[in-house]
Design a protein around this nucleic acid. Structure first.
Length: 262
DNA sequence: TGGAATGTTCGGCT
DNA sequence: AAGCCGAACATTCC
């Protein structure tokens, strides 16, 4: 489910509700989502006050009055402030006024507590909506294929498979292009494409391609704007030729062979 | 039935 | 040494 626009949408949908609330008690039931001692985690969270809810890359970061709670939604994670616990609910937070649920069928997501800055967040690259073009240009000077680089969270934090493919299409860049070989003009096109697409996707509440919903259970609409992702064999919006799907960096990669050049 | 799915990490190879 | 590859994690869907 969740790339930068989806995570941003979730954060916006729950921030006001959660900020200032106190965690009364918690219950965790997955040894994958909450690695380590789940009883110790519950102990550390009990009585804590949520000071703020923010996003960094694809992470949801809740600053507590003591420590930090970090949530990554993985592929199928949902953070919900409405609805009830079900078969795949692996985290239940009872608040002084309200409830917070973590739902995740595939259990690729993680809920972690740390005293200071969470280690996984420390390794993230810059935010794509904040990085300057000069820094983006400099960071592109590598041998890796551009699609692989866009998926690398240490390069830029927040892009995933959907928005990497959509950004490359919007910039007219073939996914197998070596990043270091991009001209200044093409790098600029890519930079603007990434920012434009992420911004538009946030405005539309993210992409609901299977079952993504925000914290209030509402779907996003950016899937209507997808030009290549999930459109294998369908006509390119630009030239009418069929969209092709290949494997790059072990991920399905959608592109138009005519409009996207190496 | 096998394969793929919005993600990340790790070990091994070149 | 950077980059690449496959596997692993667990479940659902077609």
């Amino acid at each position: 489910m969740p790339e930068l626009p989806e995570v941003e949408t979730v954060v916006r949908s729950v921030a006001a509700y959660l900020t200032g609330r106190r965690i009364v008690s918690t219950r965790f039931t997955s040894r994958f989502v909450t690695p380590g001692s789940r009883s110790k985690l519950a102990e550390r969270l009990a009585g804590r006050r949520i000071e703020s809810v923010k996003r960094r890359g694809k992470f949801i970061i809740m600053a507590l009055d003591r420590g930090t709670l970090t949530v990554h939604l993985g592929m199928t994670g949902k953070l919900l402030v409405e609805g009830e616990a079900g078969e795949h609910t692996h985290g239940v937070f009872t608040l002084d006024d309200g409830l917070l649920l973590y739902h995740d069928p595939r259990q690729f997501g993680r809920i972690e507590f740390s005293e200071g800055a969470p280690p996984r967040v420390a390794r993230l690259g810059p935010e794509p909506l904040e990085i300057s073009f000069d820094e983006f240009r400099t960071r592109l000077r590598r041998k890796a294929k551009i699609k692989a680089l866009l998926l690398n969270q240490a390069f830029l934090a927040g892009l995933g498979n959907i928005y990497a493919d959509e950004s490359l299409f919007a910039a007219g860049i073939h996914p197998l292009t070596l990043a270091g070989k991009l001209t200044d003009a093409r790098a600029k096109k890519l930079y603007l494409a990434i920012q434009g697409i992420l911004t538009h996707a946030i405005e539309l509440g993210g992409s609901s391609i299977s079952d993504y919903v925000n914290g209030r259970g509402e779907r996003g609409w950016f899937q209507m704007e997808h030009r290549v992702y999930g459109r294998e064999g369908q006509p390119c919006a630009n030239c009418g030729r069929p969209i092709r799907k290949i494997l790059v960096a072990q991920r399905g990669t959608h592109y138009c062979p005519h409009c996207q050049k190496r």
